[in-house]
Design a protein around this nucleic acid. Sequence first.
DNA 1: TTCATAAAGCAAACATTTTGCGTTTGGTCG
DNA 2: CGACCAAACGCAAAATGTTTGCTTTATGAA
Lengths: 186, 186
Amino acid sequence: MAMREGVRSGGRSARVQEAVHQAVKELEQLKTREELTVPQVASRAGVTPSTIYRRWGNLAELLADVSLERLRPDGEPPDTGSLAGDLQAWGEQYLEEMTSAPGLRGLNDVMASADSERRECCYRYSESIMATLCARAHARGEPAPSVDALVDGIIAPMTYRLLYDRETATSARLSEWIARTLVAID
Amino acid sequence: MAMREGVRSGGRSARVQEAVHQAVKELEQLKTREELTVPQVASRAGVTPSTIYRRWGNLAELLADVSLERLRPDGEPPDTGSLAGDLQAWGEQYLEEMTSAPGLRGLNDVMASADSERRECCYRYSESIMATLCARAHARGEPAPSVDALVDGIIAPMTYRLLYDRETATSARLSEWIARTLVAID
DNA sequence: TTCATAAAGCAAACATTTTGCGTTTGGTCG
DNA sequence: CGACCAAACGCAAAATGTTTGCTTTATGAA
């Protein structure tokens, strides 16, 4: 009875998804984005191309789907004892991830996807991390800006620089963004 | 002698480029991005597909190339008498452009391009506008932040919200970004 | 176990992309 | 000005990728 929209969750369907994702991850390391094709992925995953086309639509969506997983934060950000410290620590690690070849490709794959929901998903990841750090600050009795202010003051310039002018996405600048954002607490 | 890299600038080459760009602009209004194909564009431009493939590589790059033109600022931003006013006026107009269907598509096309140079180009457009407004402020004897501070404080959150959470890219928020950025002048 | 149907396989039809080769045409230099 | 070289284009065949109709498999619920 709990069947809604007729989506299959377990068994073969899940196995195929897993195999295809795995195949993409493996092939990404052997080939550039340009020379990666759906038939290749299908063949390595032991699946027919039509399965991939019917499920993901095209290569861009498949890649975005796989990359979104990689972009999802996997653990709690480290607690350094202060909001500024937490932001710096988390930001530096994020910058490092995103300036690496796979991180950059992941970012691009998500940006290239026609499905805007995926980008919103990235946004929500960042938002939830900022909320976590904010909550921590409050628990410590530390004054903290709103989550929106953190997103606008730190996430936005960091992401903007990563996307538009990679060279300037540095941890030195990160410090400035943090400082500016934290002095402006109402 | 002024021939560098052997790129053709005039004559047929330019005519073909113009025809292809024109064809893309026309077809964009009749079809969605999904149903637009290289052969279609070629046919409407009176050109063979192979010409397009050899020159642009693929549809994504062609669309990004065309969209980059649209994104280029075409005139001087209006002078309102104050830096805050200039930023608000320019920003509102930019937001309006970018939340429209063609503006959004243009933004997406550039983001989907594999060529990062195009994104850097967008960055430079914004940077030069901020520089213009800064120079104006200086001429008036008004205190003004650095261009980088304006980019990080205003362009970045505006672009970030446009890309990741369109609903929140509003002129009300723009006012906040401007206020925050201008009070922080060193 | 049985049943209904979502999802996968298969293969043919279809569309797009690549490529080799001959032709046109800018830009430069004698 | 006229000849030359190479870039860019056209054409068409070949290779490759994508879509689609139909059949088969196997999940989840009764």
